[in-house]
Nucleic acid binder design. Structure first.
Lengths: 239, 239
DNA sequence: CGGGACTTTGATATTTCTCAAACAATGTGG
DNA sequence: CCACATTGTTTGAGAAATATCAAAGTCCCG
């Protein structure tokens, strides 16, 4: 095991995810590999994008988590979505588009500029599917916050994270690092951190999850999924 | 006043909205006018699209309202968004895309097939902006349901409807027809219909709104907007 | 070792839900 | 045009879920 990971190692989850969305050919892979060469680190808490301001550069997340946040005048905030490795940010057709949410790094991150649209038909397809997935997860979030009770919200949300991280190969063993505080979970799910804490305890008590030292593991993800009636998110016939 | 409205009359709100998003040139208008010729009626309650099924045809709404609905296994349902005249539905880049929500007609509707992508650069721009708006409203919906209390949710949502209908010229006088039941409002805002009823009464008591015979009117929309801290939804610098 | 951020706990308050029934409006068949 | 069914609205009383407030405990970092 080398001390400093090779470039390919850092990029791997992103490539894994994009390849999972669409099987890439040599050309697409080459273009992608080239783009991955110019990586930019982003420290935790740095804002990648600010609500109401123009979107500067599209970004491909190589490592780390970010949160899409909406701030209210009185200090309340809603975390609308999380941005994970392999996700694309700010890819929008017409330039001069205004961000509807801020995006803030939850952990230290590494990002890069994705290949421009039109560089590869397969990559364009990846972009379209990724965008459709973003929308699907947003719909899921509305439903979660609108209809589910605290236990269901939390379970469904954690299962969604599992599903998404698995796509990037970041939860291959069924467990993953959960880098967010209970307060962030609360702002995501429309609950208070106190209630998140008690709900997590209920899930532990019932032996649904193990969460220790920021590592989350489901005791029986399939059973929990069934119990919550959660269906995997799909946006195209093949995928 | 003629008994059966001329074609242009039916199409007017849709054209008003699309023109408000991007100033259209003669060519775009001609292409649009041509597409508007083949109109399809859709009766209330008919499904325009079914969750999990492939999206058949893109549609441009000429008249009437539809709801994007997510159904849970146990009968609960979340109305994720409303689809109004001038809105576009199912416009997605790659074919074989799967609908993430059902779409069901709330009222009798009239729809048509919009000009295909690539027919006019300006119309393509309209499509992009319309899609960006859809996303912005979805983000607003997450925030509403996640952070606001019942009164705020209802007020903010009704103001959003006003804003959107005004874009289509359907609320020029500051009032509009609200074709949905209190139960639909409840399923939209993650509340019960009983609580919606009481919240509506509170808004009437405080003289914020007048709602009678399905017609909603704000006593002072600007004041309510300020009270709720609601900002208009924007997705591009010019618009 | 001290300090800040995060988690946990307890007691109480508030919002929203549930259930049940009455009431109103609307439409339909006879 | 009435009688009736259906659908939607309104009201009340009590229950449940979740929030609030305050403090103690834990962990990690420098």
């Amino acid at each position: 095991m080398s001390l400093s990971p090779a470039p390919a190692d850092i990029a791997c989850p992103a490539i894994t995810r994009l390849s999972a969305l669409v099987a890439l050919d040599g050309r697409a892979n080459a273009i992608l590999a080239d783009a991955l060469r110019r990586r930019t680190p982003v420290p935790a808490r740095r804002e990648l994008m600010i609500e109401g301001q123009e979107i500067r550069q599209p970004q491909l997340i190589l490592r780390g988590w970010a949160a899409r946040v909406r701030h209210l005048a009185d200090g309340r905030r809603q975390i609308v979505a999380f941005v994970l490795p392999g996700d694309l940010l700010g890819l929008c057709d017409p330039p001069a588009t205004i961000a509807t949410t801020s995006v803030v790094a939850v952990t230290d991150m590494v990002v890069c500029t994705p290949p421009r649209r039109g560089a590869s038909p397969l990559l364009d397809k990846v972009y379209a599917i990724s965008k459709a997935l973003d929308e699907a997860y947003l719909v899921a979030q509305v439903t979660r916050v609108g209809q589910l009770d605290a236990y269901e919200r939390l379970g469904d949300f954690l299962l969604e994270l599992l599903e998404r991280l698995q796509l990037a190969g970041l939860a291959a063993d069924g467990g993953f690092i959960l880098p967010m505080t209970q307060e962030m979970l609360a702002d995501t799910l429309g609950l208070t951190s106190v209630h998140i804490n008690r709900t997590l305890q209920a899930m532990r008590r019932e032996n649904s999850i193990v969460l220790k030292n920021r590592v989350l593991r489901f005791t029986n993800a399939e059973a929990l999924r069934r119990g919550l009636g959660r269906l995997p998110v799909r946006v195209c016939a093949t995928g």
